[in-house]
Amino acid sequence: MQKAHGPRLRRYLAVRMRNAAADVPDLIQEVFLRLLRINHHEVIRNPQAYLYTVAGHVLHQYTLRQSTAPDGFETNDWESELPSGAESDPAKAVEVEQRFEAIGRALEELSPRAYTTLVMHRRDGVSLKEIALRLGVSHRMVKRYLAHALAYCRERLDETE
Protein backbone atom coordinates (compact mmCIF):
# COMPACT_ATOMS: atom_id res chain seq x y z
CA MET A 1 0.00 0.00 0.00
CA GLN A 2 2.61 2.52 1.09
CA LYS A 3 5.07 1.39 -1.49
CA ALA A 4 2.51 1.74 -4.22
CA HIS A 5 1.38 5.20 -3.18
CA GLY A 6 4.75 6.86 -2.67
CA PRO A 7 6.03 6.85 -6.25
CA ARG A 8 2.68 7.81 -7.75
CA LEU A 9 2.33 10.78 -5.45
CA ARG A 10 5.89 11.70 -6.16
CA ARG A 11 5.36 11.70 -9.91
CA TYR A 12 2.30 13.82 -9.44
CA LEU A 13 4.30 16.26 -7.32
CA ALA A 14 7.12 16.44 -9.82
CA VAL A 15 4.72 17.63 -12.51
CA ARG A 16 2.84 20.00 -10.22
CA MET A 17 6.01 21.55 -8.88
CA ARG A 18 7.25 22.28 -12.36
CA ASN A 19 3.98 23.96 -13.20
CA ALA A 20 3.90 26.01 -10.04
CA ALA A 21 7.62 26.87 -10.28
CA ALA A 22 7.47 30.55 -9.38
CA ASP A 23 5.11 30.03 -6.46
CA VAL A 24 6.80 27.01 -4.99
CA PRO A 25 8.49 28.84 -2.08
CA ASP A 26 5.11 30.02 -0.75
CA LEU A 27 3.62 26.60 -1.22
CA ILE A 28 6.52 25.03 0.63
CA GLN A 29 5.92 27.39 3.52
CA GLU A 30 2.33 26.16 3.63
CA VAL A 31 3.42 22.52 3.54
CA PHE A 32 5.85 23.19 6.35
CA LEU A 33 3.17 24.80 8.50
CA ARG A 34 0.88 21.85 7.94
CA LEU A 35 3.63 19.47 8.98
CA LEU A 36 4.06 21.44 12.18
CA ARG A 37 0.39 21.12 12.98
CA ILE A 38 0.49 17.38 13.36
CA ASN A 39 0.66 16.74 17.04
CA HIS A 40 1.23 13.05 17.06
CA HIS A 41 3.80 12.74 14.38
CA GLU A 42 5.04 9.56 15.97
CA VAL A 43 1.92 7.80 14.79
CA ILE A 44 2.66 8.50 11.16
CA ARG A 45 3.81 5.24 9.81
CA ASN A 46 5.09 6.57 6.56
CA PRO A 47 6.25 10.16 6.93
CA GLN A 48 7.49 10.32 3.37
CA ALA A 49 4.11 9.42 1.91
CA TYR A 50 2.51 11.77 4.41
CA LEU A 51 4.71 14.61 3.20
CA TYR A 52 3.86 13.86 -0.40
CA THR A 53 0.16 13.78 0.43
CA VAL A 54 0.26 17.09 2.25
CA ALA A 55 2.29 18.67 -0.54
CA GLY A 56 -0.09 17.16 -3.08
CA HIS A 57 -3.07 18.79 -1.39
CA VAL A 58 -1.38 22.14 -1.16
CA LEU A 59 -0.41 22.02 -4.84
CA HIS A 60 -3.86 20.84 -5.79
CA GLN A 61 -5.48 23.77 -4.03
CA TYR A 62 -3.00 26.07 -5.68
CA THR A 63 -3.90 24.71 -9.08
CA LEU A 64 -7.59 25.19 -8.38
CA ARG A 65 -6.93 28.79 -7.46
CA GLN A 66 -4.88 29.32 -10.60
CA SER A 67 -7.26 27.97 -13.17
CA THR A 68 -10.92 28.77 -13.52
CA ALA A 69 -11.35 26.03 -16.08
CA PRO A 70 -12.01 22.54 -14.76
CA ASP A 71 -8.74 20.80 -14.49
CA GLY A 72 -9.49 17.14 -14.17
CA PHE A 73 -5.88 16.17 -13.65
CA GLU A 74 -6.37 14.47 -10.36
CA THR A 75 -6.31 10.79 -10.94
CA ASN A 76 -4.88 10.98 -14.42
CA ASP A 77 -1.77 12.76 -13.31
CA TRP A 78 -1.25 10.51 -10.37
CA GLU A 79 -1.13 7.61 -12.74
CA SER A 80 0.85 9.17 -15.54
CA GLU A 81 4.46 8.33 -16.08
CA LEU A 82 5.22 11.28 -18.28
CA PRO A 83 4.94 14.97 -17.60
CA SER A 84 2.93 15.49 -20.77
CA GLY A 85 -0.60 16.83 -20.84
CA ALA A 86 -0.22 19.11 -17.88
CA GLU A 87 2.40 21.00 -19.81
CA SER A 88 0.29 21.82 -22.80
CA ASP A 89 1.24 25.47 -22.49
CA PRO A 90 4.04 26.01 -25.05
CA ALA A 91 6.00 28.35 -22.79
CA LYS A 92 5.87 25.75 -20.06
CA ALA A 93 6.96 23.07 -22.47
CA VAL A 94 10.06 25.08 -23.32
CA GLU A 95 10.82 25.52 -19.64
CA VAL A 96 10.48 21.82 -19.05
CA GLU A 97 12.73 21.06 -21.98
CA GLN A 98 15.36 23.42 -20.63
CA ARG A 99 15.08 21.85 -17.25
CA PHE A 100 15.60 18.38 -18.64
CA GLU A 101 18.57 19.60 -20.65
CA ALA A 102 20.05 21.03 -17.47
CA ILE A 103 19.59 17.70 -15.74
CA GLY A 104 21.28 16.03 -18.71
CA ARG A 105 24.27 18.35 -18.43
CA ALA A 106 24.52 17.70 -14.71
CA LEU A 107 24.50 13.95 -15.35
CA GLU A 108 27.50 14.40 -17.63
CA GLU A 109 29.43 16.02 -14.83
CA LEU A 110 28.86 13.25 -12.33
CA SER A 111 31.68 10.98 -11.28
CA PRO A 112 31.55 7.68 -13.22
CA ARG A 113 30.39 5.71 -10.20
CA ALA A 114 27.62 8.12 -9.32
CA TYR A 115 26.58 8.26 -12.96
CA THR A 116 26.52 4.50 -13.40
CA THR A 117 24.55 4.00 -10.23
CA LEU A 118 21.95 6.61 -11.07
CA VAL A 119 21.44 5.50 -14.65
CA MET A 120 21.32 1.78 -13.92
CA HIS A 121 19.04 2.18 -10.94
CA ARG A 122 16.68 4.85 -12.18
CA ARG A 123 16.69 4.14 -15.91
CA ASP A 124 16.76 0.37 -15.83
CA GLY A 125 15.58 -0.43 -12.35
CA VAL A 126 18.65 -2.46 -11.44
CA SER A 127 18.67 -2.89 -7.68
CA LEU A 128 21.33 -1.13 -5.66
CA LYS A 129 22.38 -4.44 -4.19
CA GLU A 130 23.14 -5.77 -7.63
CA ILE A 131 25.01 -2.63 -8.63
CA ALA A 132 27.02 -2.95 -5.43
CA LEU A 133 27.88 -6.52 -6.31
CA ARG A 134 29.02 -5.63 -9.79
CA LEU A 135 31.09 -2.70 -8.63
CA GLY A 136 32.51 -4.74 -5.78
CA VAL A 137 31.55 -2.22 -3.13
CA SER A 138 29.07 -2.30 -0.26
CA HIS A 139 25.40 -1.55 -0.52
CA ARG A 140 25.98 1.42 1.74
CA MET A 141 28.57 2.81 -0.65
CA VAL A 142 26.24 2.56 -3.62
CA LYS A 143 23.54 4.36 -1.66
CA ARG A 144 26.04 7.09 -1.16
CA TYR A 145 26.85 7.30 -4.86
CA LEU A 146 23.17 7.60 -5.60
CA ALA A 147 22.49 10.25 -2.97
CA HIS A 148 25.45 12.20 -4.20
CA ALA A 149 24.24 11.99 -7.80
CA LEU A 150 20.84 13.36 -6.81
CA ALA A 151 22.17 16.12 -4.62
CA TYR A 152 24.65 17.21 -7.24
CA CYS A 153 22.13 17.34 -10.09
CA ARG A 154 19.67 19.24 -7.95
CA GLU A 155 22.35 21.73 -7.00
CA ARG A 156 23.17 22.32 -10.65
CA LEU A 157 19.49 22.94 -11.31
CA ASP A 158 19.56 25.74 -8.74
CA GLU A 159 21.83 27.64 -11.10
CA THR A 160 19.33 27.55 -13.90
CA GLU A 161 16.29 28.51 -11.84
Binding site: P7, R10, R11, L13, A14, M17, R18, V24, P25, I28, Q29, V31, F32, L35, L36, H41, E42, I44, P47, L51, Y52, A55, L82, P83, R99, F100, I103, G104, L107, L118, V119, R122, R123, L150, A151, C153, R154, L157
Partner: peptide, 28 residues
Protein backbone atom coordinates in the same frame (compact mmCIF):
# COMPACT_ATOMS: atom_id res chain seq x y z
CA UNK B 1 9.86 13.78 10.61
CA UNK B 2 11.92 15.86 13.00
CA UNK B 3 14.32 16.69 10.21
CA UNK B 4 11.52 17.93 7.96
CA UNK B 5 10.16 20.07 10.73
CA UNK B 6 13.36 22.01 11.20
CA UNK B 7 12.63 24.53 8.48
CA UNK B 8 10.79 25.08 5.22
CA UNK B 9 14.18 24.79 3.54
CA UNK B 10 14.33 21.15 4.57
CA UNK B 11 10.90 20.51 3.15
CA UNK B 12 11.84 22.30 -0.04
CA UNK B 13 15.05 20.33 -0.46
CA UNK B 14 13.26 17.04 0.07
CA UNK B 15 10.45 17.78 -2.34
CA UNK B 16 12.84 19.04 -4.99
CA UNK B 17 15.06 16.00 -4.73
CA UNK B 18 11.93 13.86 -4.87
CA UNK B 19 10.87 15.54 -8.10
CA UNK B 20 14.33 15.01 -9.53
CA UNK B 21 14.15 11.33 -8.58
CA UNK B 22 11.18 11.02 -10.93
CA UNK B 23 12.69 13.18 -13.64
CA UNK B 24 16.04 11.44 -13.77
CA UNK B 25 14.71 8.37 -15.61
CA UNK B 26 12.99 10.61 -18.15
CA UNK B 27 16.32 12.20 -18.94
CA UNK B 28 18.43 9.07 -18.62
Amino acid sequence: TQWLRISPEHVRAYLQVSALWEEAPLVA
